[in-house]
């Protein structure tokens, strides 16, 4: 678990001497084993907050506790080696092979080479890259999506309990982003890391975040589950930022199969279980139906999704 206590980052304007607060009096607890999305408009302090957690930026006031330990009392390098870090521009080392990139932190920690090599192969497999094929390649030989997979593998290499991600999927095209988000959700389902993910993409925050922390001008606007933000916005800012179609955005991140219930779907319009719930809703509206039948990969009806089920998101 990561806990922020009255965190503050103040910059003083050198000309006027006036203070500017990038982050102001921020108290927040990122729950263990869950993804918390740090969401907000640009300049709201979300990246600054993230970078203060592994002390790439030093706070001007307040405290950060990582796994109960005061981050300020640790050596920055030691702290960072215990925290996985993935950034938007990917930041792979272009002069090293994929395997060497992934092995960065284990090597810094001085772990035995043979074990690291084993670990690298395991991680590449985990992120969906065939080790034999990719180990010896250079980052420049990979597509953007493959590079970011390597970036995730590298962050996980030393098995850190905590992962910080700064717009990890921001530079990818929509198709690659979707695929990688799916793969990432799958990985996290098994690993249960404590993840803080900065994003300005509302869809991504609602789709991947177990919790969402919405920041505005350096202060916390709302912290809660995606449901809380979508259905129970605490302020006008939250409502406006998410937009009136927030519910639809949320539905877009859920599979129809995940909401369907057992039932007799004969005679209803059919949708594939892998379709997202927003599209299923669109089908209901188009077909003027109160429910649709959800079909599995084999084409057989596996359940029924009714209009009321959509409210259970």
């Amino acid at each position: 678990m990561i806990e922020l206590r009255n965190l503050e980052k103040r910059y003083d304007n050198p000309l006027t001497g006036l203070p500017f607060y990038a982050v102001k009096d921020l108290s927040l607890a990122f729950p263990s084993g869950e993804i918390t999305a740090l969401l907000g408009p640009s300049g709201c302090g979300k990246t600054t907050t993230l970078r203060m957690i592994n002390r790439l930026i030093e706070p001007t006031a307040g405290q950060i506790l990582v796994e109960g330990e005061n981050a300020q009392s640790l050596k920055p390098e030691a702290l960072r080696r215990r925290i996985g870090y993935v950034i938007q521009q990917i930041g792979l080392f272009p002069h090293l092979t994929v395997a060497q990139n992934v092995a960065t932190v284990p090597d810094l920690l001085g772990q035995p080479k043979a074990r690291t090599r084993e670990r690298v192969r395991e991680l590449l497999g985990l992120v969906g890259l065939e080790p034999g094929q990719f180990e010896t390649k250079r980052p420049s030989e990979l597509s953007g999506g493959q590079q970011q997979r390597v970036g995730v593998a590298r962050a996980l290499a030393a098995d850190p309990p905590v992962l910080l991600m700064d717009e990890p999927f921001g530079a990818l095209d929509p198709l690659a982003r979707d695929k990688l988000q799916e793969a990432f959700r799958e990985i996290q389902h098994n690993l249960k890391k404590t993840i803080v993910m900065v994003t300005h993409d509302i869809d991504e925050a609602l789709k991947l975040g177990d919790k969402v922390a919405l920041l505005n001008a350096g202060e916390l606007a709302q912290f809660g589950t995606p449901d809380d933000l979508v259905r129970r916005p605490v302020s006008e800012f939250v409502r406006q930022f998410l937009g009136e179609d927030a519910l639809l955005r949320q539905l877009a991140g859920v599979r129809a199969g995940a909401l369907a219930r057992a039932g007799d779907g004969s005679g209803l319009p059919q949708v594939s279980a892998s379709l997202n719930a927003r599209s299923a809703l669109s089908v209901m509206l188009r077909e003027r139906a109160e429910a649709v039948a959800v079909t599995g990969e084999d084409g057989q009806i596996s359940g029924v999704l009714s209009f009321h089920d959509l409210e259970r998101t």
Partner: peptide, 8 residues
């Protein structure tokens, strides 16, 4: 930045 963030 990545190098610093990795703990170099």
């Amino acid at each position: 930045d990545a190098a610093r963030g990795m703990g170099m």
